[in-house]
Design a protein around this nucleic acid. Structure first.
Lengths: 204, 204
DNA sequence: TCCATAATGTACCTATAGGTACGAATCTAT
DNA sequence: ATAGATTCGTACCTATAGGTACATTATGGA
């Protein structure tokens, strides 16, 4: 099939990782082809040959980001014994990784493109859809808790999910603004104080 | 003094308003000189003559934004009888204006430049400083409430301010994502449920 | 060994970015 | 009326953006 021809001289995954980090750090429009090829260690035609154009590369980098960063979050959400513990774990995890050394601060999905030119509108739409998907995960977990009895019946899963999603998005901004771990943890603590009903800690 | 010479053929304030709206909608880097001159209805040399360069114009547009949008918020903060009412008023006001028809969604200070090229780092630093200033206003109002006795002594004004500032930043993202008024109001309601001590409504 | 296939590096393309030179036009003060 | 000052529109500048043509090189299969 596609076995013949000159073999690729670079590690495709490593190059994609490098691209992901640049997009994550500078955003979609703030990243130039020159930035990308420099970080990936390849020439422009190799980039186009392996990944398509800039937008295609961004989409693939975003998919890699979600696979990497989203997996542990999804796992934490499903495995936690209660909805409250699940949300607390998710927020706490993000508070930690958003300010970790050696990687861009905040969430790539939130920060990569909130505003920009009309030409990059498709990228913003994709990111907005992924944010919505993240919120849907939160809502589903809260609804599950309601079914399992650890969330009050009168609670509104959609509204709670919107609230905690907003917290996460605000935390990404805070992380970019230089917030440290303690500050984000404090924000998470405050956010968890809003949990409905037994606010003094009705955990599993 | 500056009375002689050919008079300016356009309304400087109206042009600045137009520039503000474009920057607010598309962000700093997402706005081109062509976008600006088209919206302002002037030619490029007129723009440079009246406002300096792109960065200077952005700074002045941001100052106008703060004068316009910040005034009512500062007034609401200081005039409210209690810190809780002050914060609730601020959040409620922003929930309203963030999704108002006929203007860009969300907050210009939050959205204009969170990521980008190294060249626009000064703009991001300016915006971050203004976000910090906003949070400082919240903290000061909460501390005042503590002094006046309507906020529990054991509450942490800095931490609460960080929390509500994060809420506002997250709400700007939500507004850009198409959230409607009811959704933002729900987020505000949840956020106010975190107020310390008598959470069932210890208002003034 | 020769061919088809595919990746490589160099060198280029067009469009547009932010910014400016310059002469014509329009004002105030004398 | 003239001088000095300031804005105007046209036309331009350089740098860089994303993207590609093309000859070269390296592989697998016949």
């Amino acid at each position: 099939m596609a076995s013949s021809g000159r073999p690729r001289a670079f590690d495709r995954l490593r190059a994609l990782e490098a691209a992901m980090e640049v997009f994550w750090e500078r955003g979609y429009e703030g990243t130039t082809l020159a930035d990308l090829t420099a970080a990936m260690g390849i020439n422009r035609p190799s980039l186009y040959g392996a990944f398509g154009n800039k937008e295609d590369l961004f989409c693939e980098a975003l998919a890699l980001y979600e696979a990497r960063e989203g997996a542990v979050i999804t796992a934490g959400l499903t495995e936690a014994p209660t909805a409250r513990a699940a949300i607390a774990t998710t927020l706490g995890h993000n508070a930690k990784v958003y300010v970790e050394e050696g990687r861009p601060r905040g969430c790539m999905i939130v920060l990569s493109s909130l505003v920009g030119t009309p030409e990059s509108a498709p990228v913003r739409a994709l990111l907005a859809a992924r944010r919505q998907a993240g919120e849907d995960e939160l809502r589903a977990r809260i609804a599950r808790g309601q079914g399992e009895g650890d969330v009050p019946a009168e609670a509104d899963p959609a509204q709670l999910a919107a609230f905690y999603s907003t917290i996460l998005q605000g935390m990404s901004v805070a992380a970019r603004d230089g917030a440290d771990r303690a500050r984000l943890d404090g924000i998470v603590a405050n956010a968890m104080a809003c949990w409905p009903a037994g606010r003094a800690g009705t955990d599993g």
